[in-house]
């Protein structure tokens, strides 16, 4: 009997729209211009990537400031055998990177050949894509700091 119970696929798809608002929209527009923007908080610290409202005080974020394009790896995890859905085809490290001028780290990928090249505290810099659209993937990834701009 149980073999006869009917089953059928159900696919639900709809192209929703998202509106970014001035803060997130400002950050993404910065990426398109190969510029990193952080959100200045009332206590003077800087969040990157920004949130629209201060997560500790609930105050609105009203000021975006330009910060550095290089920074420090605060923690990382090696992805030695990337799966098809992951953002990089070659082995990479998921890493939290605290950019110079920011007080909070952001998640992205560090592109190095093997895990031996990774360490907490290492300096990395942004590698930009040539064609940028205002998307977090405008950052192709982070690479060990050379001193040359991305």
């Amino acid at each position: 009997m149980s073999d006869d119970v009917l089953r059928a696929p159900l696919v639900l798809e709809y192209p929703f729209t998202r509106t970014t608002g001035p803060v997130i929209g400002g950050f993404l527009t910065g990426l398109r211009e190969a510029m990193m923007l952080g959100a200045k908080r009332s206590d003077g610290t800087v969040m990157c990537p920004p949130l629209e409202y201060d997560p500790l005080t609930a105050e609105p974020i009203t000021e975006l400031i330009e910060i550095g394009q290089a920074g420090e790896v605060t923690t990382w995890s090696w992805a030695g055998d990337p799966r098809p859905q992951q953002p990089f085809e070659q082995p990479f490290a998921w890493a939290m990177v605290k950019l110079d001028g920011a007080d909070t780290p952001m998640l992205h990928g560090v592109l190095v050949d093997d895990a031996d090249a990774m360490s907490t505290g290492m300096r990395v810099q942004i590698q930009w894509r040539e064609e940028r659209t205002g998307h977090i993937a405008d950052i192709a990834g982070f690479v060990p700091e050379t001193g040359d701009a991305g």
Partner: peptide, 12 residues
């Protein structure tokens, strides 16, 4: 259409 704000901005 409130194209000037995100959902967060709208509820806020």
């Amino acid at each position: 259409t409130r194209g000037d704000v995100s959902m967060a901005g709208l509820v806020r």
